[in-house]
Design a protein around this nucleic acid. Structure first.
Length: 271
DNA sequence: TTCCAGGCGTATC
DNA sequence: GATACGCATGGA
């Protein structure tokens, strides 16, 4: 990671990073194309990031915010080139890494990840974004656990979240009352953390795995949705190779994007 | 129009 | 433990 403060902006030189591939691949839902770049939030911290020549411009931020927020969020201290070399030992992952080599895992806030993936269940990505956008519109920012637990019926209805509304309210109550403490869970061994998360209403195996991976940076967590199920059936009937398991969550991110975006024709040919 | 989506809770066996 | 079903909504 190399960076430079330039006026109110931070310039970042970072290989293995493409904005669209990272910010629009179904791991975070609050980024939107803005000019040549993207604008979005981590919780309530806004950012516009633009690609320029051989670097990125983080617009109107400070060195402190960059070092304490965005450095972690964009996982800038992890060498994705090395990860891709490891994954590329195997054929399908090699294809997936070559297909979108600019994907990075976003290290999101655990509460934001919990709410996002509660909403994601049995839902389409464009609609997930819409519900989260309306969720942030109610109070003008991403609601805290206490705020969300206090939403009126009318405010919940305005989200049009369907059957997921009761999961959002129920989980917000448990977290706001500290009956479930996300920061404590994030320090538990993986299997214990899974069980602890599943106390929350609406959190089953898939959502728990997403909270662990995206919100608690447990890169050995491996969310299996309908798309990854297809990947496993088609390419890994024996399971993911053992040597990838410690970072299976990151491998999963390349595979998810790959299976959703390769032309249907090559899917059929490959079968 | 009908199908389906980054699933979960519940009933039933 | 496994399997089946309903669930709210709206994009494709």
């Amino acid at each position: 990671m190399e960076y430079l403060v330039r006026g109110k902006d931070v310039l970042l030189w970072q290989p293995d990073f493409q904005l669209a591939e990272t910010l629009d691949c179904g791991q975070a839902f609050r980024w939107a194309p803005d000019g040549d770049g993207y604008s979005g939030f981590r919780l309530d911290i806004p950012l516009t990031i633009l690609p320029e020549r051989d670097y990125f411009r983080l617009v109107n931020t400070t060195e402190e915010t960059f070092l304490t927020v965005w450095r972690e969020y964009f996982d800038l201290d992890t060498d994705y080139g090395e990860l891709k070399r490891l994954f590329s030992q195997e054929e399908t992952l090699r294809e997936a890494c070559a297909f979108a080599g600019g994907i990075r895992l976003l290290k999101q806030d655990p509460w934001e990840a919990l709410i996002s993936f509660l909403i994601s269940q049995n839902n389409h990505i464009p609609r997930i974004k819409g519900i989260i956008s309306r969720l942030c519109g109610v109070r003008g920012h991403f609601p805290s656990p206490v705020e969300l637990a206090g939403f009126t019926q009318e405010e919940m209805d305005s989200l049009r979240a369907g059957f997921r509304s009761k999961y959002l309210l129920g989980s917000a109550e448990l977290v706001s009352q500290n009956q479930v403490c996300l920061s404590e869970i994030s320090r538990l061994p993986l299997e214990e953390a899974r069980q602890a998360l599943r106390i929350l209403p609406g959190v089953g195996p898939k959502v728990a795995e997403c909270v662990l991976l995206y919100g608690m940076y447990r890169v050995d967590a491996f969310p299996v949705d309908v798309w990854i199920k297809r990947v496993l059936e088609r390419y890994y009937p024996e399971g993911i190779p053992h040597r990838f398991l410690p970072q299976a969550g990151i491998a999963q991110q390349y595979l998810f994007h790959y299976i959703r975006n390769i032309p249907q024709k090559s899917l059929q040919l490959a079968h």
